[in-house]
Write a protein that binds this DNA or RNA. Structure first.
Lengths: 143, 143, 143, 143
DNA sequence: GTGGTCTAGACCACT
DNA sequence: GTGGTCTAGACCACT
């Protein structure tokens, strides 16, 4: 069962956080087709957000074609976003684990790691002319 | 000069995106103490958001002690968040660049990469009892 | 400006009625790209439903790619559903107008007309093997 | 035997769809006094909705004076809504069939046809000052 | 002033 | 007991 963590006061709406965390779990294969999401009540108990907010997020996920809300039954995953390369035992994942361990050991914070990865993605995608590199801030120095 | 990218319709407020992208640039050393942020007018020209929204973000950054708004002059970086390990020529950064290139070559999307990194951070931090692992979704299977 | 009519107590949710009426106006060309939908406040004044309910409908329309909600500005049509054959001066439309006039003159109610059209669509689509004839009730006699 | 089609996820409650489809069949004369509605069990088998939902709809139809629930026997039509002009071989119906065939041949979708008919009804009823034109969206341009 | 989020609570639909 | 709609009202984001 996925376990949502809501960061209040970070400016990102709670329902967006639920949607993003769910999509992340789908990409990682932590959630599979047929899996049940926690009920609104369970999320409320764990996060202290309002059930309506949970349902708002679930509705968004439904419209994205990822889950199905069944009245009286619950909310179920209907589509996977799992990626071959992201598997538990893939070399890619093992190497990333090593890299993260070293980064943390060198004193880098979670936010530093995320900043580095975002920058690395920007650099790579810019160099390879990839489309739609959204959520990106570049500096002229990149040019 | 930092070049903000605003993703409208993603649910994350525009001012939050500016704050986050600025902090990321500070962590990466793309922005240094004394650097000037773009004027509200420049950001407006580049992103089509309202100048008040830009100023709202700059005020947040000022309250965080990262920049200073000097009336008539502009907004200037007053504090760095740069990290030793995150330098341009650090092994950590070079290795990450390689890893990202391979991940992309294997067909992983930007969102897949970010999901993997978030999961790797969660796994590492959980194993090492690190504090405040915000913005995280775990599954019971992690336990 | 479109003028919504909400039928409370008919069992159909108010936000669904707004969505359907908007889509109908788009198909008929009554609403064109760039047109502004009434503000939530205006709809509230005209229909006595809650602004949140209006926004819920507008959000649905946005996710369907038909309108864009611009904070501080309003809600605007971004895509047309207008059909060539449905134009104001098309023969099809003129003939339908005549037919409706005769049907009403013969004492048929609005609901009778709608029932007849639905049945005619079912009969035609079944005979021509058309796909996805949703919202249809057939009788075995059709077979 | 009437054959209900339930559109889940369209926002309209399942029991409302059953009621509407039944009324439509009554108006068209597809269902006549004395006819038996399918048992809840049969509807369940055909539509995968819960028997209680079917019974809820039948109870609504009973309260509207259209059917009678006889325990152990089934649900039977007690009142017709059939209209003289809506008969199978009426000119009105034949002409409508032709019109629908042409509309479909010109590429209009089911929803386009329904939108056109609704608009034609609105136009006619507005011009002739008819009562209670519910479920209608008009534009100022109509005036 | 416009839309956007969130809450608390009522009541409904469905299993 | 599950999700679904709607409300009233507070507060926020954006123009």
């Amino acid at each position: 069962m996925i376990d949502y963590r809501i960061d209040r006061g970070g400016g990102v709406p709670a329902y967006v956080q639920i949607v993003e965390q769910t999509e992340r779990a789908l990409r990682m294969g932590f959630l599979k087709v047929g899996d049940k999401l926690p009920t609104a009540k369970e999320v409320v108990a764990a996060t202290a957000i309002n059930p309506n907010t949970v349902l708002r997020a679930y509705r968004d996920l439904e419209q994205a074609g990822l889950v199905e809300l069944r009245r009286g039954l619950g909310t179920f995953v209907t589509r996977s976003l799992a990626r071959p390369g992201a598997e538990d035992d893939s070399p890619l994942r093992r190497e990333l684990g090593d890299w993260v361990a070293r980064a943390r050991a060198e004193g880098l914070e979670r936010a530093d790691v995320l900043a580095m990865v975002t920058a690395a993605l920007d650099t790579h995608d810019t160099a390879h002319d990839s489309r739609a590199p959204q959520d990106r801030a570049r500096t002229k120095e990149d040019a």
